[in-house]
């Protein structure tokens, strides 16, 4: 049907928005450039080149001696373990909160119309839960995992445990937000059909919502696990176990060849996780 009558297209008014936006972008770019102290000349000045050269030549060859490698075995394993446990805790936090913070689950859309129309108390309660869930998720992810780790090291002592907690909370906040977006993005028609045959919200979730969201759910969770491997290596810098502690020691001793070894191991671990995720995604 003639929904797109040509007469209507021609009349689209000229908007100032693109120019405004372009201007704002340029302003932000140059201001940031200046304030961030970006200065490519440093790379060509003798002082900068010497420091860079020292760092790079210091890295080669990487220290592949059996003694050092065997020293790294435990911290590497610990890093993986921190990332796995941290991600599991993150899913346990992000999944329920993400669910409660899903707009179309909690308050809006066709699945809540009949239930909430003419029921102000119910509506108020639902909104309260919805905002609390979203607020918690924002809180968890607005504090960097590094800061979480710093606080947990104070609270529960040095070692991998604070690292697990830090990743669990910070990543829980990120996962929850993205989960709720994934859940909001599924086709609502099958859900409407399930509701109309008398299913409750949880049944609708397990039969309609989750199966539709599963591929995105799994692939985003695995991606976050990959990030967690990297993050848990860094958390060692504040004493939260893993490879990070070793990186810190080697850097402080100016043993850049050891740093390179650790970076290679980290790279291999991330690549392995990536490979594993691809395999899992292919199975879905």
């Amino acid at each position: 049907m003639n929904l797109l009558a040509p007469s209507r297209i021609r009349q689209s008014p000229k908007s100032l928005f693109p120019y405004l936006f372009a201007g704002l972008f340029l302003l932000a770019f140059f201001d940031s450039w200046q304030r961030a102290g970006i200065d490519p000349k440093v790379f060509f000045e003798p002082r900068g080149q010497r420091a860079l050269g020292k760092f790079l030549t210091g890295m080669f060859p990487p220290d592949l001696s059996p003694a050092f490698l065997s020293l790294l075995f435990r911290p590497a394993l610990e890093t993986i373990q921190i990332s796995i446990l941290g991600t599991i805790i993150a899913v346990m936090i992000g999944f329920p909160l993400g669910l409660l913070g899903t707009n179309t689950m909690a308050v809006a859309g066709i699945l809540n119309e009949a239930e909430l129309q003419g029921a102000p108390l119910r509506r108020g309660l639902r909104y309260a839960v919805y905002f609390i869930a979203r607020g918690l998720l924002s809180l968890f992810r607005s504090i960097p995992e590094f800061v979480w780790a710093f606080m947990f090291v104070r609270a529960v002592g040095l070692g991998p445990f604070p690292g697990v907690l830090a990743i669990g909370l910070a990543y829980g906040g990120m996962l929850g937000k993205v989960y709720s977006e994934i859940f909001e993005g599924v086709n609502y028609r099958p859900l409407e059909a399930l509701q109309s045959l008398g299913a409750n919200k949880l049944q609708i979730f397990f039969y309609g919502w989750f199966p539709q969201a599963l591929p995105n759910f799994v692939s985003y969770t695995l991606y976050r696990w990959e990030c967690a491997v990297r993050a848990s290596a860094i958390l060692g810098l504040v004493g939260a176990g893993g490879l990070g502690q070793q990186i810190e020691i080697s850097m402080r001793m100016f043993n850049f060849n050891e740093v390179l070894t650790i970076l290679i191991i980290l790279f291999l671990m991330v690549a392995a996780v990536d490979y594993l995720s691809a395999k899992v995604r292919a199975m879905l």
Binding site: P190, E192, S196, L197, N200, G208, Q212
Partner: peptide
């Protein structure tokens, strides 16, 4: 009660009313 009432009414839609992945 609302769910009970819905249970007694079955609906067939035009399309997109099944869960494709199940």
């Amino acid at each position: 009660q609302l769910r009970q009432a819905r249970r007694r009414i079955g609906t067939v839609y035009q399309q997109h009313n099944l869960i494709p992945r199940l």
